[in-house]
Amino acid sequence: MNRKSIMAYPYIVWMVLFIVIPILLVFYYGFTMESSAGLTFSLENFKRFFEPVYLMVLVRSFILAALSTGICLLLGYPLAMILASKDFKRKNMMLLLLIVPMWMNFLLRTYAWLTLIEKKGIINSLLSNLNLPTINIIYTTRAVVLGMVYNFLPFMVLPIYTVLSKIDKSVIEAAEDLGANSLTTFKKVIFPLSLPGVISGITMVFMPAVTTFVISRLLGGGHYKLIGNLIEQQFLSVYDWNFGSAISIIMMIVILISMGILSKYEEVREGGGIV
């Protein structure tokens, strides 16, 4: 029977070549500096990241991502509740409609907003036709948050919906029989039971939001750099691999640790999948 483990060898070779070695290279570049004697060990790159200019980028990324996650939760939770309630007809149809935009290329989804909120875009030409003041949000942080919420909202709704629709209805009925009003039932029964879905949703929105560089580039116009833009810039225009690698290491560690912490709280990950 054990001979069959040979079948994993091709993949293990692939994995070492294209997963392990690249990550090791990132660490190698992150912990070294270009000097006259070639590459030498140094923590300079990490020190540099804690300069206010770069720290600001990190803080901004976290604030924008947290804001978008919060908005997604506020908008998404009620929607998930309505969809999960049993008197809602055409449930499958609605779920399908929720998934369709997710399957569309996310660059196109982001681009769609570009045409809408442009200075001379559709919303503004509508507003000026109605003699209303025009809005000017393109290339601001508000546009970036809008883009994040638009792109990631379904990722919040689906896991919460999955958990909510699995809640045993008799538990809720029991709470009502015992005299709880709907607010208390929600606070004490429904919300705590849906927490795994909420955490799963937060992970699925926050992680891509904090690392995106496309939304901030297209809708923020590159004025509001996020951590993803900073990494991209180091590798593709400044060519400072050492600094870029150091930022990547910091981001990787922050994200893997937070995923580790969050995964302790969610047991229902399977089933709450995307598809």
Partner: peptide, 26 residues
């Protein structure tokens, strides 16, 4: 092996992309 396989799933895409880019140049 399973934990290493989780890396590209959990890691942000940008890090997977950048690390592969370094490898190919290297």
């Amino acid at each position: 092996v399973m934990n290493i396989s989780y890396l590209p799933v959990l890691n942000p895409d940008i890090i997977t992309g950048v690390s592969l880019m370094i490898l190919f140049i290297f």
